[in-house]
Nucleic acid binder design. Structure first.
Length: 463
RNA sequence: UCCUCGGUAGCUCAGUGGUAGAGCGAUCGACUGUUAAUCGAUUGGUCGCAAGUUCGAAUCUUGCCCGGGGAGCCA
């Protein structure tokens, strides 16, 4: 077990300390009488430099085993480094190689690799500077999410991964079945007979935990989900995954304005947390991945998001004189190009759009008094597009039933969801946040497959 | 799923009808308190797969597979 991370040694170690370093070799520079070895254990961006003199036991054998990718454990004295590049280094006295890595076949070089190539070696790519930085930031984001909600008394609720309902028509679903696919039981009408299946009815991987989160909010007030979500869409883009993590807070006794305030405070909190906990990683992204990463983070932390209604956004786009590929007119959904124009060109910061036409939004969103719009809000981020989607939910039973029917859904399928309006209904609101898009936005990584350790996407399930 | 660009050495790429190339990596050597070390030499190929055109195809044609970027769906 690693008890003394390289991050801790580099930060707090003093010359004269005896230290043990365990990790993987990044590079070796050999001289006649000694060798420099750079070791990384994933705890930080920096490597620790180790000097191995020829008087170390088994020097000749060990030196042959020291290659990029090999695992190493060594003990030595921490000394002040006589050369530039590091404050301290380790003068090794005992060295053990746990596992060699054949340099002829080990795929990672000391040089930069393309992310496309690294995706083909998903089991090794976390050993690179960029991917390890991404996953440290991802971890910090996760911790920040929980800390934010826990500080505010929100209950973390575990909503199911297997679900019987397509809760919001959010997209194609993965079937979950134990039926024998070579001999599927059929009903007299030649439909698949799910009564013979494991659950006695059709079941799917969840596309959202929102409806269940609403159930829990009606008992605990403020709750949030943070877990995996699945979409079987054949989406081949740098912003979509078949398996992704979603954060969905749901608040009872809450309206759209409070919902927006919470979402904005939440994003600001996460950015601040990561800037404080992953400074070196963030500087690395700013230098190597996207020169605007630090400025964006400062922008989020220090500025109010722009807020305007869908209707005003349409007017603004129509008057902009900008040429768009897709038409702009009231009643049509905004396209990526429109969202990006607003966030990147007009306001140059996140934009919260509210009050969308009822016909382009989901059934559960609360109808506004004008009868034409719903209390929905989307947060649009530069370069990423929609990062948060939320709404005040329809708490009035009759209106909710009307909306279900109008969208071609059967209210009977939603009996327990409707019961929440029959028994002690309250105004409530919530939002959903794609966790990987947050990490993308934070790090400047352009492809969503590079911000999750094991991406699932069409034809992508190897690692 | 649609549009578009691409697939040549372990990696990144050049090569557009006539003997398969470079840089990096790796290997060997030299040198050096080095820092993606440096210098020299060596090594390295089913040109994505299949069919076709041609005296001759990495190069032209067709189909398929895979990847990047963009779009749709959405988070």
């Amino acid at each position: 077990m690693i008890t003394n991370y390289i991050a801790a040694i580099l930060r707090g170690g003093n010359p004269g300390d005896t230290v043990t370093v365990k990790g993987w070799i990044r590079s070796k520079r050999e001289a006649k009488e000694f060798a420099f070895v750079d070791i990384n254990d994933g705890s930080c961006m920096a490597n620790i430099q180790v000097v191995i003199d020829k008087d170390v036991p088994d020097y000749a054998t060990i030196l042959k085993q020291i290659n990029t990718g090999a695992s190493i454990e060594l003990t030595g004295e921490l000394v002040e480094s006589p050369a530039k590049g590091q404050r301290v280094e380790v003068k090794a006295s005992q060295v053990k190689i746990h596992g060699e890595a054949d340099p002829e076949t080990y795929p990672l070089q000391k040089k930069r690799h393309s992310f496309e190539f690294l995706r083909d070696i998903g089991h090794l790519r976390s050993r690179t500077n960029t991917l390890s930085a991404v996953f440290r930031v991802r971890n910090a984001c996760s911790a920040a999410v929980h800390q934010f909600f826990q500080e505010r008394g929100f209950l973390w609720v575990h909503t199911p991964i297997i679900s019987a309902s397509d809760c919001e028509g959010a997209g194609e679903m993965f079937n979950v079945t134990t039926l024998n696919l070579k001999n599927v039981p059929l009903t007299p009408e030649k439909e698949i007979d799910y009564s013979k299946d494991f659950f006695g009815k059709a079941a799917y991987l969840t596309v959202s935990g929102q409806l269940e989160a609403e159930v829990m909010a009606m008992a605990f007030g403020n709750v949030y989900t943070f877990g995996p979500t699945f979409r079987a869409e054949n989406s081949n883009t740098s912003r979509h995954l078949a398996e992704f993590w979603m954060i969905e807070p749901e608040m009872a006794f809450c309206d759209l304005l409070e919902d927006m305030d919470l979402a904005e405070t939440f994003l600001r909190y996460i950015f601040k947390y990561v800037m404080e906990h992953c400074q070196a990683d963030m500087e690395f992204f700013n230098e190597r991945i996207d020169k605007t990463v630090l400025a964006t983070a400062e922008n989020i932390i220090n500025n109010q998001f722009e807020r305007l209604t869908y209707t005003n956004a349409i007017t603004l786009l129509e008057k902009s004189g900008q040429k768009f590929e897709y038409p702009v007119s009231w009643g049509l959904d905004l396209q990526s190009e429109h969202e990006r124009y607003l966030a990147e060109e007009v306001f140059k910061k996140p934009v919260i759009l509210t009050d969308y036409p009822v016909d382009i939004k989901s059934f559960y969103m609360r109808l506004n008094d004008d009868g034409k719009t719903v209390a929905a809000m989307d947060i649009l981020a530069p370069k990423i597009g929609e990062i948060i989607g939320g709404s005040q939910r329809e708490e009035r039973l009759d209106l909710l039933e009307q909306r279900l029917t109008a969208q071609g859904l059967n209210p009977a399928d939603y009996w327990w969801y409707l019961d929440l309006r029959r028994y002690g209904t309250v105004p409530h609101a919530g939002f959903g946040l794609g966790f990987e898009r947050l990490v993308q936005f934070m790090t400047g990584m352009t492809n969503i497959r590079d911000v999750i350790p094991f991406p699932r996407a069409p034809l992508t399930v190897e690692f």
